[in-house]
């Protein structure tokens, strides 16, 4: 939710609780949207779950490469590449709260994070990703996914939303392939 992020940036109060809360809210929101679309289109639960997994993997890949890019060029590092333990609380938040939010985040995202990491373990050994790559990859971001859903709903194409996201997920392998083939650091 860009509004929340902008708000904490303007107030200069970054926090890990906020960082994890944002991700937890995103995954619940995605799930609720897809279940609703399944309900209004009398769709298959199985395909809906498949689309949900696809959407989450898309978002995770986008986030993975984006955080790596930020780390490669020393940009903002509130998000870490490997979320494998609770970070130390920032000023203005308690460690207990960070631990709890991290745990919930971990339960919801661990499968997707591990899957994407295993598909491309060496992504850190890249040159900084070029902007054309990041722009194309940003179609995997939640904002773009929600825009696609909104446009398809407005055009009365709701029964095609779930199949669309399942097929669009094939691009995950294309992006990973392009990253491995063209963007590796020369040995």
């Amino acid at each position: 939710m860009p509004l929340m992020e902008s708000f904490s940036r303007i107030k200069k109060t970054p926090s890990y609780v906020g960082r994890y809360y944002d991700s937890i809210a995103d995954i619940l929101l995605n799930f609720l949207f897809l279940i609703t679309i399944c309900y209004i289109t009398n769709g298959s639960i199985l395909l809906t779950i498949l689309a949900f997994i696809g959407i989450q993997l898309q978002g995770t890949l986008y986030n993975y490469y984006y955080v790596i890019l930020r780390n490669l060029v020393h940009g903002d590092t509130t998000s870490r590449i490997f979320e494998d333990h609770a970070p130390q609380a920032m000023k203005g938040e308690t460690q207990v709260k960070v631990d709890i939010y991290y745990k919930i985040y971990d339960i919801l995202y661990v499968v997707f994070d591990k899957t994407i990491y295993n598909l491309d373990r060496n992504a850190m050994n890249s040159n900084p990703f070029p902007s054309w790559f990041m722009t194309m990859l940003s179609s995997f971001g939640l904002g773009f996914q929600l825009l696609v859903m909104a446009v398809m709903l407005a055009l009365r194409l709701e029964e095609y939303i779930i199949p669309f996201f399942i097929f669009y997920s094939i691009l995950i392998f294309v992006f990973i392939g392009v990253r491995k083939a063209f963007l590796n650091k020369p040995a």
Binding site: P2, I10, L69, D76, P128, T135, S139, F144, L147
Partner: peptide, 25 residues
């Protein structure tokens, strides 16, 4: 604070809400 240094910034198709969000915030 921007997330990336200027020379690495890119057109983010999923971040079209940022401008409005910043204004409201």
């Amino acid at each position: 604070m921007a997330k990336l240094p200027k020379e690495y910034q890119f057109v983010d198709l999923s971040d079209y809400g940022r401008g409005a969000a910043r204004f409201i915030a």
